[in-house]
């Protein structure tokens, strides 16, 4: 479908890799500019009694700060900037995609997988940095009978390895499915004409509302799961 097509604006070849500036890159840059612009503008006043924009920025901050604290505890607050950046980046990309004629960056699995792989690398890195080889105990639950080790350990390893895949597939599938659904229903409006088209029109309006909810929800789930994985790396399966 046209809305998912990648267009190269600036052809660029980096050591045999296609690093062209595409519409996808454009929207990512746009998102970063919007985020930085909005946050610095909204927090510019630093008023004790916040203006409307400032309370939006503070709300976003508190939302993620609470999320990180609840899921990872005090030690995890060090990684708050990481989670907040991920959340706001994904959220703005999702919301930008809701604009007509725009491009939904997060509907491409390359992008979501890159983000998920980043989370995976960071989490694994933190785990080994904090616990050394003891981090491998994550794969061997406490009090596991020796006979079960050859079965449980591979399962635990696989369940650890599939995390970035499920993290990326979830975001990409939700965004792509939602936008495809909207397109299909909008197509019905035209083909059914003046009177029959009213039903799909209503459905399209309803789905558009739902898509806004999904855009927020998926950004939230992405960051919640990042927090949960961080908690595994920091506290090794301890819950708070």
């Amino acid at each position: 479908m046209e809305q998912f097509e990648i267009n190269r604006f600036l052809k660029l070849d980096l050591f045999g890799l296609d690093a062209s500036f595409t519409n996808s890159s454009l929207f990512m840059v746009l998102a970063v500019v919007l985020i930085v612009g909005f946050l610095s503008f909204a927090m510019g006043g630093r008023a004790l009694i916040p203006t409307r924009l400032q309370s939006v920025a503070e709300l976003a901050y508190e939302f993620i700060a609470n999320m990180v604290y609840e899921n990872t505890g005090k030690d995890g607050m060090k990684y708050f900037p990481f989670v907040f950046t991920l959340f706001i980046f994904v959220l703005v990309l999702n919301l930008l995609g809701m604009m007509p004629y725009s491009f939904t960056v997060t509907s491409h699995i390359v992008v979501t997988f890159a983000l998920a792989a980043l989370v995976f690398v960071v989490v694994t890195g933190i785990g080994f940095a904090r616990h050394g080889l003891g981090f491998l105990k994550l794969f061997k639950p406490e009090g596991l009978p020796l006979a079960l080790v050859p079965i449980i350990v591979p399962i635990e390893v696989i369940s650890f390895l599939i995390r970035p895949i499920s993290l990326s597939v979830r975001l990409f599938a939700n965004m792509m499915a939602g936008h495809t659904l909207l397109k299909v229903f909008a197509g019905f409006i035209v083909s059914l004409g003046m009177f029959g088209g009213i039903v799909p029109l209503i459905a399209t309006v309803a789905f558009t509302g739902l898509e806004f909810l999904v855009a927020f929800l998926q950004a939230m789930i992405f960051s919640v799961l990042t927090c949960i994985y961080l908690n595994d790396a920091i506290n090794m399966h301890d819950h708070h």
Binding site: I158, I162, I165, S166, V169, R170, A173, Q218
Partner: peptide, 22 residues
């Protein structure tokens, strides 16, 4: 309700990805 929907989707993907990856 929105949160519940998100939780449902979260679990559904977990279920599929394990089999596909394996």
């Amino acid at each position: 309700r929105g949160q519940a929907m998100g939780q449902g989707l979260r679990i559904a993907v977990d279920l599929v990805v394990g089999v596909a990856f394996g």
